[in-house]
Nucleic acid binder design. Structure first.
Ligand code: MN
Ligand code: MN
Ligand code: MN
Ligand code: MN
Lengths: 219, 219
DNA sequence: ATATTATTTTAGACTAGTCTAAAAGTTATT
DNA sequence: AATAACTTTTAGACTAGTCTAAAATAATAT
């Protein structure tokens, strides 16, 4: 049996590996999960004993196949619950985090299977992140940062990098919405800020910092 | 903050008081919650410190107003989640227990408020048990045991005493369903077993043991 | 190549929740 | 009223998860 806490560690490790592309450090996990490095070391030993991670002192951590499968199952549950909250209970995309963080730990195969069906087998969650299937298979999206595009490019918004409520609320306020078309009208050389035209035909200005947190695919 | 475990104790104490009508014993709690008496004593001290129960050594336990309110809130969540599982995810009434037992501990006021709305403010759960409102108010049903009725009485099924899957499945198989009419055709003196006519006009025989676990209101 | 700095691990302690075994208290029986 | 039987509490130990402070290791800079 895998505990609530172990699940949170596995998910954190998964995301850090995804982000960094290599073995993750004790400190990185501690920061992500809001604990101290000493606590992380203890947990790494435990996860290693359970064959969920590959761990050697001072060498950082990767997930075993079993660990990755477990992590993906938690992520599947988290994203399905987020979808439920937004689609059925009228949560905004910036409001789902805390509840989903708890709901992802509910243990019931039937529940998650039926939830998936009830939501009509969604492929992505409210933030555009892909939802792993029951076997932990993930459909990789080949989206890019909006900041990488050029003047007059037209693209479709598919996701966000930063998931913080502050950023999501800023996008709402600016009318930048998942699935919408974005056309780059102008790029200011000086600071690489952008002038874009959103779905609702409004021209808005966004900083390069913002553009680096918006995922799109070329149209 | 009230922990997962404390919540389970409060709910158990609430149900035992409801059942027995008086202060509940350490052993009764231990049995209900599947722990040892020594563990219960430890927890009783903790709950007493938090002013959730009235507890004096060897004297049994009652809930304070704060404790009762907390218990009713957990019961509200449990029953709303049961309703969700049955109404939206096609769970049978005998399948909801394990998942609801976990879901009742999810902490999010908005979630439960919206869930209530999504389910259209149900008054009773899939077992006919009343759902407390957001303020912990409970609508008391004045239903009676089917075993208390007489020959030729007609009544409506409103609930069950025993909630075990085995009993619920037996009722399903016998076509005894919440909301259905039940007419008492005959009572066998010898063992107080009943011959009844259910909604679907079928005559069936049930033991007194079964009749004592079916709640009805006179029609 | 050595010294300094940063990271990681160990040691030891704490809390929540659980257990077994023994002691204390209550209730029932003679 | 004394004894027996049962219930409840205490004492002490264990696990999971966390922490601080110190020790060990690795990385960086001189
Ligand atoms: Mn979580
Ligand atoms: Mn998401
Ligand atoms: Mn529970
Ligand atoms: Mn119920």
């Amino acid at each position: 049996m895998i505990s609530f806490t172990e699940e949170n560690y596995l998910k954190a490790i998964y995301h850090l590996i995804e982000q960094e592309g290599e073995a993750v450090t004790t400190n990185a996990i501690a920061e992500k999960i809001n604990t101290k490095a000493a606590s992380v070391t203890d947990m790494l030993k435990k996860l290693s004993d359970k064959k969920l991670i590959n761990y050697q002192k001072y060498q950082g951590v990767t997930l075993t196949p079993k660990g990755e499968k477990t992590a993906l199952n938690i992520i599947r549950k988290q994203r399905l619950w987020e979808m439920f909250l937004v689609e059925k209970l009228d949560f905004k995309w910036d409001e789902v985090h805390d509840a989903a963080e708890q709901l992802e730990h509910i243990k019931s195969d039937k529940l998650i299977e039926q939830l998936d069906k009830f939501l009509n087998y969604p492929k992505v969650d409210p933030h555009g992140d892909p939802i792993p299937d029951a076997k932990g298979r993930l459909q990789i999206q080949k989206s890019h940062l909006l900041s990488k595009f050029k003047k007059n490019d037209v693209c479709i918004m598919t996701g966000v990098v930063d998931h913080s409520p502050a950023f999501l609320q800023y996008l709402d306020k600016s009318g930048i919405t998942l699935g919408n078309e974005i056309k780059i009208k102008e790029i200011i050389e000086f600071d690489r800020s952008l002038q874009i035209i959103t779905g609702r035909q409004k021209t808005i200005f966004i900083s390069n910092d913002v553009a680096k947190n918006i995922l799109v695919i070329a149209k």
